[in-house]
Design a protein around this nucleic acid. Sequence first.
DNA 1: TTCCAATGTGAAATCGATTCCATATAAAAA
DNA 2: TTTTTATATGGAATCGATTTCACATTGGAA
Lengths: 330, 330
Amino acid sequence: MLTIKEIAERANVSRTTVSRVLNNSGYVSEEAKKRVLQVIEETGYVPSENAKSLRTKKTKVIGVILPKISTETSSRLVKGMDEILAKEGYQILLTNTNLDPEKEIEYLKLLKSRHVDGIILSATNINRPLVEEIYNLKIPFVTVGQTISGLANVIFDDYQATKDMVNFLIQKGHTKIAFIGVDEQDRAVGYLRKKGYLDAMKEKNLQIETSWVQKGVFNVESGYESMRAILLDAAENKPTAVLAVTDRLAIGAMLYLNEAGLSVPDDIALAGMGASELAKFIAPPLTTIDFSIEEAGREAALLILQKISGENYHEVIKTIPYRLVERSSV
Amino acid sequence: MLTIKEIAERANVSRTTVSRVLNNSGYVSEEAKKRVLQVIEETGYVPSENAKSLRTKKTKVIGVILPKISTETSSRLVKGMDEILAKEGYQILLTNTNLDPEKEIEYLKLLKSRHVDGIILSATNINRPLVEEIYNLKIPFVTVGQTISGLANVIFDDYQATKDMVNFLIQKGHTKIAFIGVDEQDRAVGYLRKKGYLDAMKEKNLQIETSWVQKGVFNVESGYESMRAILLDAAENKPTAVLAVTDRLAIGAMLYLNEAGLSVPDDIALAGMGASELAKFIAPPLTTIDFSIEEAGREAALLILQKISGENYHEVIKTIPYRLVERSSV
DNA sequence: TTCCAATGTGAAATCGATTCCATATAAAAA
DNA sequence: TTTTTATATGGAATCGATTTCACATTGGAA
């Protein structure tokens, strides 16, 4: 691999001068500059980012920690980040925890050891040791999807979005509304969305049967099972609408309803959340909430850039706007 | 940021000894080792990968160049790679060309300047200058989806898979089969799949109307338009089956057929390729080819690791097995 | 003519690790 | 007792860049 030293020798200047040409800094005569550029052109020399980083303490790399690497949410998030970061010459170093809390801490250390200029964490559940670790990391940090006080956070209004959706269902004439959620350890999707549902129902004085509220996990099968549970347990008092906290759960529910010979939305209306692609093309197309994940990625990227440049050192909570997407499943 | 020098001072040893403890190399007394580990524990010291890399010439980073960052194929590919690479302590540095050929070369240089230990390129079309650049890169290199001679390549059997699908349609009684492809610049998806279709038809002596063969781009709308074109142009001699080279194109086609009041598969059978999630949940579920993208990612990762360890320096062409997924759209 | 500022250049220190080499000691072999 | 040999340690070079500082040279202002 070619080094700055060799370029200097070939161009008959010092390393200092080559560095000056490379960085457009200090005084360099046109004469010398031309020779250096010439040699660089001929040799295809590319300076070592590594050596550069060691000296300058900047790597132009942003570490991104994802809970799952190949979900639609993750990839849309990364897409949004990349749009902004690439423009500024930053690269993304990906890490994937597979929902393992220990790996979150492990990767935090790893990213630190790699001297990334900033870290963006897309978290599902935040635990004490993780927060501790983050606080004494002293690296520009942004979370997406959950909040950690004192840091920069990009979040979705899970609570209000869910309320909106419930109110939308109510407005459509439904009063018996069931809910398929996930574990409340996940504060955003589990806890806040459930709270939104419960509060919206309470505000309108609507009763909720115990069997209408089910808990699943993040996949289609689980939606199927939850829907079945709702219909079996609530045999005497069936809901006329179901809200699932993710589109995949809703699609699972739809699959069960189809199998059970029930029509959506005539027998039971169905709504999801997340605006996945799936939701658009399924029959009937699914009413859902579009959380603008790419936008969240872009925001997170902008925030981390601000943090890096030192513009913004206090707590930030940036809420990404959402949109209710009305389709024929309701 | 803490350095090895400070650790050495606090533990009352030399930097050399700290390094030995860190890397489990050379002789270190239990005594000294304990002191060093103690100090590291207390301080939370993490050695700088940067400085390390500069000296050792290894970064434990694999650069991945993707044509599009948030497609299902890309994320499944990255997932497969990460499964293998993370286990071996490698990180993934992501770059996204957005199908811009100039960026491919730009990112190649960038990854070189970052001294990644290897590069995996998921390419759609390979042009001369790119190949030139790759050859004189002298970094372990693996391509996915297309072949470059002399290198390690992970590919899909696009040709045979398409033939299989056409034969499957024929076996189901279809003789009038239309085709929705993409630009043949894309050798794998554009050229080879089209060739597979043409050859399979020819082998069975089946005629192809000009209007049955359409060219779209990689999205749903394009499938819609292509299907419409087929039905309008071929008004007098309509096909009874349509094969689209991607599931999204097939789904677009299905959308048009639905709108046109035609039933799938009764009026027209429909098949896609790629086994996207969408295909599973659409109505009717789409017959497609599952190319095992994750497996390709894993294979690419294994190959790059081999290349890095110097085990495998000659050309490799690894073909990933595919599977015809029979669903009710045919 | 003298002095100062602007321009141009390179030697050497620096970043934080690894690694080669020299050296010291204690235990084992001759 | 002398000579190896295994163990233990640290000084200093090294990796490839940037950056500080010192030093020339030149042209214009005083």
